[in-house]
């Protein structure tokens, strides 16, 4: 899984279902450390366009990551969720929770 886009933005990719969330959580912890060191107080856009699959555990992970960082003053915005992931998010009822965290919705 890549953790940066070619433009340097943090990027998330691959499988975010229950079998993989432990690994993905480790990745997010590393990204969080980088963000805390490099860009405190700023808003960071996370490229989610290469997320391939996700389930409740994945959405819960992303939401918790974003909200715990928010407590520390690190603002995140997710961007570029693929259509199937958006559909899944709506179906599982996470749309409202991500409303303020999704760059595309905020636009």
């Amino acid at each position: 899984m890549d953790s940066q886009t070619p433009t340097g933005l943090p990027a998330l990719s691959g499988d975010w279902t229950i079998g993989f969330v432990a690994c993905q959580a480790d990745l997010l912890r590393r990204i969080a450390c980088d963000l805390a060191a490099a860009r405190p107080g700023s808003t960071t856009v996370i490229d989610c366009s290469r997320i391939e699959s996700i389930d409740t555990s994945g959405f819960q992970l992303l939401y918790t990551w974003a909200t715990t960082l928010d407590f520390k003053g690190i603002k995140l915005l997710f961007a570029g969720f693929p259509e199937p992931i958006l559909a899944s998010r709506a179906l599982l009822g996470f749309t409202a929770l991500f409303a303020s965290l999704d760059l595309n919705v905020r636009k």
């Binding site: 229950i18 555990s57 960082l69």
Partner: peptide, 11 residues
């Protein structure tokens, strides 16, 4: 997030 267990359901 350090103590967060991603396999524990909080939803």
């Amino acid at each position: 997030f350090k103590k967060y267990d991603p396999e524990r359901c909080l939803t």
